[in-house]
Design a binder for these strands. Structure first.
Lengths: 125, 125
DNA sequence: CTATTATATAGATGAATGTCAATATTGATG
DNA sequence: CATCAATATTGACATTCATCTATATAATAG
């Protein structure tokens, strides 16, 4: 069962006026939440920042070198990011090169932009 | 111990050129990851969207009415969002009114903006 | 003061997560 | 073909998470 399912409004109390419906379908919420969740680990966040900062492609050994974590653990985090659609990879010879999927980053950014009063401008302080 | 600690570069392989250092301190990574993680649950994502869409303040009973979840579970999710700094609340009489913290949303948006090739424009497709 | 209402907190429990060691896979090299 | 090197996969384990029920707290109504 999907726990983020929208419920009908049953508003009889006096605490506040009628409130808008939820703006995401539960499928959208699940997909976006999975992407935020993938970003929601300091190791994975650092990995994504590293990939983006490199501006292109980075192989796994270079990622590994920056953490005090085992190779399988890094591989696991890369898989989670990949499954969420935040990064992609491409094999070239012996190596796998990883890179950020900018469309996914943009989709999450759009959600956050909606949370701000000046939504639409995309002005980040 | 902090698992996202930066390691010195030890680059002797031929897989790719030297790669930039991690761009976040592990403290920054931890704080930002905690915020992304708070957004990384479909119920909490829906709650935040609901608060923002209402444009102001919503009391807990109105949030509860939209989910098939118990009152303590909603309260628990609100606490997680509050602890992450994504939302705040204010008591007025009998009710607690919750609202999005736009500065936190902006900070996360800035991270995502960095992930995109045209970082700086803030153009979300 | 007592009862009610709105919300939070505490405690329990099954599911998911992060990590590692061990092993498998796959391309390169001798 | 045999070995090596880079990365993925598997399986185990402790920790964290999402949820519930039960209870506490605090403001309001009577």
């Amino acid at each position: 069962m999907n726990q983020s399912t929208i419920q009908p409004i049953n508003h009889s109390t006096a605490c506040c006026g009628p409130v808008a419906e939820l703006s995401l379908t539960s499928e959208e919420a699940d997909r976006l939440a999975a992407q935020f969740k993938a970003m929601g680990n300091p190791v994975r966040l650092q990995i994504v920042m590293l990939l983006s900062r490199y501006g292109g492609q980075v192989c796994v050994c270079d990622i590994e070198a920056r953490f005090t974590l085992s190779q399988p653990t890094i591989s696991h985090h890369l898989k989670i990011l990949r499954r969420a659609g935040l990064i992609e990879c491409e094999r070239r010879g012996q190596w796998y090169y990883y890179f950020v999927n900018p469309r996914a980053a943009a989709a999450l950014g759009a959600v956050l932009a909606q949370l701000q009063p000046d939504a639409g401008q995309g002005e980040y302080a």
